[in-house]
């Protein structure tokens, strides 16, 4: 049997994800997490009326990151992730999960070389992408500003 034929056989016959179930889960969990975020936003706006909008937004994401980290620590978030997939990865809580889970995993190799060093094995790309795009977009705006 040729390689190509075999690959086709595998692609045709391997078990596929059950799209509808996974999509519904992702939609529901993602939607609920966003609603919780909205709730914190309204709460902070009510409690801290003199804070500016961007600071409130940062506070909301920090709260959500706290929640994501805490649930990861309790061992709940990975179970949620197994069901929800994209629904728990894409919200900012998923970012917190991807920082905390390697930190917890590698703290057996010591605090400095284990936990601290390997904290970003999953989330590192996000920080790099964020920083690079921050510099690039800053330069774009600066150059545009030169012409105005």
């Amino acid at each position: 049997m040729e390689d190509k034929q075999y690959m086709e056989y595998v692609h045709a016959n391997a078990q596929k994800s059950n799209h509808i179930v996974t999509l519904v889960w992702a939609f529901l969990v993602g939607g609920i997490i966003c609603c919780i975020g909205q709730g914190f936003g309204d709460l902070f706006k009510f409690a801290l009326p003199d804070w500016e909008k961007s600071k409130i937004a940062a506070l909301v994401s920090m709260t959500m990151i706290f929640l994501g980290s805490f649930l990861t620590g309790l061992g709940v978030y990975d179970k949620l992730g197994a069901k929800a997939g994209g629904g728990s990865i894409v919200p900012i809580t998923g970012f917190a999960n991807s920082v905390v889970s390697p930190a917890m995993e590698f703290n057996k190799e010591g605090i400095v070389l284990g936990m601290m060093a390997k904290m970003f094995v999953v989330a590192g790309p996000i920080i790099v992408a964020g920083t690079v795009s921050s510099v690039v977009s800053g330069l774009i705006y600066w150059i545009i500003g030169l012409f105005n």
């Binding site: 996974t22 990975d78 889970s101 590698f106």
Partner: peptide
């Protein structure tokens, strides 16, 4: 991945 990472 790490055990606690929420992957599907």
């Amino acid at each position: 991945y790490p055990l606690e990472l929420g992957t599907q």
